[in-house]
Design a protein around this nucleic acid. Sequence first.
DNA 1: AACCGTTTTTGACATAAGTCAAAAGAAAAC
DNA 2: GTTTTCTTTTGACTTATGTCAAAAACGGTT
Lengths: 185, 185
Amino acid sequence: MELSKFLASLIPFKPDELQDIVSHFEKENIPKNTMLIEQGQVSKKLYFIENGMGRSYYLKEDGKEVTQWFFGVGKFMSSVDSFFQQIPSIYYLEILEDSTVYSISNENMDLLFYKYHKMEKLGRLVSIEMLTKVVNKLNAIQFQTARERYEYMLAEFPDISYRVPLGHIASYLGMTQETLSRIRK
Amino acid sequence: MELSKFLASLIPFKPDELQDIVSHFEKENIPKNTMLIEQGQVSKKLYFIENGMGRSYYLKEDGKEVTQWFFGVGKFMSSVDSFFQQIPSIYYLEILEDSTVYSISNENMDLLFYKYHKMEKLGRLVSIEMLTKVVNKLNAIQFQTARERYEYMLAEFPDISYRVPLGHIASYLGMTQETLSRIRK
DNA sequence: AACCGTTTTTGACATAAGTCAAAAGAAAAC
DNA sequence: GTTTTCTTTTGACTTATGTCAAAAACGGTT
């Protein structure tokens, strides 16, 4: 999904506004398995996924990867607190498939927020949407059996569920790979 | 914490702006055990807690209450998606102690967002803060033992942990009351 | 201070999911 | 097309937490 289409679908920007806003982003092609940011670094960019997909994950003390979120087409991908508060990231951001993304720097983002009231509103709407989704996941994780959690996954990320390694999904859902493998049958 | 102090701590509002904004809120005293909104209703108001505390919860199919969040002093309390999208609430909002709150209607909130760019920014900042906290809880719930989850609770809500019934905390943490009781020793 | 209702604790047992280890299957590299 | 590496499945056993039920502790009210 194109960035300008996405923006216009949320807020009625004028054509010249839209053009100005999009011009602050940079379109990039990113090959699979690219790390956009590593744990401990301060995130410099926010990404919008036109095509492809990625995930955020962190490492537990024992070194195991825990997938924290999947980012599909038409979503913003970032290490939220690192990007907006410019603090070291807890998460790795990884591109999982060859992807086309629009990236924007923190400075440019602030500039747009400052310049366009509507952009600030868009930021608020996107944040609240994300908040709602995280709350949904929380409810799934907290009070559902492993089987129901997998069903939540299929509902929330229908397109992604079949494209990533089992282990990524298992850790996303808070269960072991073995358990997920048993459930899928 | 006073509303105006809280607002000013996040964004440098001018005195007259601050006064205008606060005038759109209504200060109310609410006795404990009051239900601010019930499951299925559309949330008409957003609340800022000057003093006291509340929680949001929902009912599982088997009728058990599940605490979803606690709201303490200096926080906004709402059924986020119901208030902002004006859809039926999944949650109950309950005041747990005699409280003083500032409430604002959805229309007035929109009006403030529209009138003040800075207010929109505040909305974004508050949303992202909440998002970060929910993600924290998610990580605690997802990958920690019951004992560690209780420690997360003490860290996140130090003031609240000793003021609410055990059952509320247990369901908030995704465990049974019996388990929590055993842990606390 | 004795009573009643609510909340918390304790006990015995059940179970979903985790752990460890190895085999089978798929994908990538040569 | 064969080898190597990575991913998924299967099996046997362990464990943390849940369930159900009853007893104890607490808090408010008369």
